[in-house]
Amino acid sequence: MSNPLYRRDVISIGDLSRTDLEFIVNRSAELKHSGPLPLLKDRLIASCFFEASTRTRLSFETAVQRLGGTLIGFSDSGNTSAKKGETLSDSIQMIASYADAIIMRHPQEGSARLAAEVAGVPVINGGDGANQHPTQTLLDLVSIAECQGRLDGLSVALVGDLKYGRTVHSLAQALGHFNPTFYFVSPDALAMPAYIEDNLTAMGIHFSRVESLEEVIPMVDVLYMTRVQKERLDPTEYTHIASQFILKADMLSHARSNLRVMHPLPRVDEIHPSVDRTPFAYYFQQAENGVYARQALLSGVMNEAIELPFPGGR
């Protein structure tokens, strides 16, 4: 089975077509059911975290090791020559000469795109400042497909900080390939930016703004919650406004039976722990899928053709 990702850089969700996204979603489900396969055997992957990140780094490194690959790298820039003033371009060229692929996170926007231009091996973006974090979106898609049995034609509410949240911007863009209906639920000060709405309009995607969380719950298949950060709002308004975007179990009494609640984690108080015990909670399964989505991506980037024991997947 050939794949569309072989030797590609994965920097921005916009670089991935519907075919690419479907490939990763299907491959992820296959790998979840097949158990560990040696798809990265004899491959050395550099895991370069110029900025610390527990969840992203550990899930990438788990994915590499589960597929039989080996790792070099660092978990923050404190002990690297970046500290001595070496440019990122020089660091990446050197690392690219050692490893078969580079996974990187860096605090500056555009760093991953620059790295991909100077590296002779594929670069996978694990987050570049406030810009892109494509593998978060991939695991979101994998989880949505898993809990809904499809990606096409879903009703999806995006809740919380829609202005600054790169997660919801990328998810909206990626789901845009699958004819969704979106509901945006946020404080006015943190509404979805006009350029995202313009893009969706240009793609022919239906979306609307909804005032309250309770109102949107009966209308959707996926309730995607994000955190409203204190520092984004006027402190006197924060307590009042943030409480309107907190999900509690009793608010789900009119939900569709297939509704699933998702969250990129870590959560603070926007999902009350009472929701954890309902059949609607899906955020921990979502986090687990981070490993399978990254396995799917890495196996595609590193192998021209793959024979799986379960062709066709789910």
Binding site: S12, S89, H106, G110, R113, D198
Partner: peptide, 30 residues
């Protein structure tokens, strides 16, 4: 916070025109 400020690389912008408004989109920080 765009990486182009710290690296030996030319800035690159794509020109976007919509409704008479002109915007420049950075190739790096997007």
């Amino acid at each position: 916070n765009c990486i182009t400020h710290n690296e030996p690389v030319d800035s690159r912008f794509r020109v976007l025109v919509a409704d008479d408004a002109v915007k420049l989109k950075c190739h790096y920080c997007e």
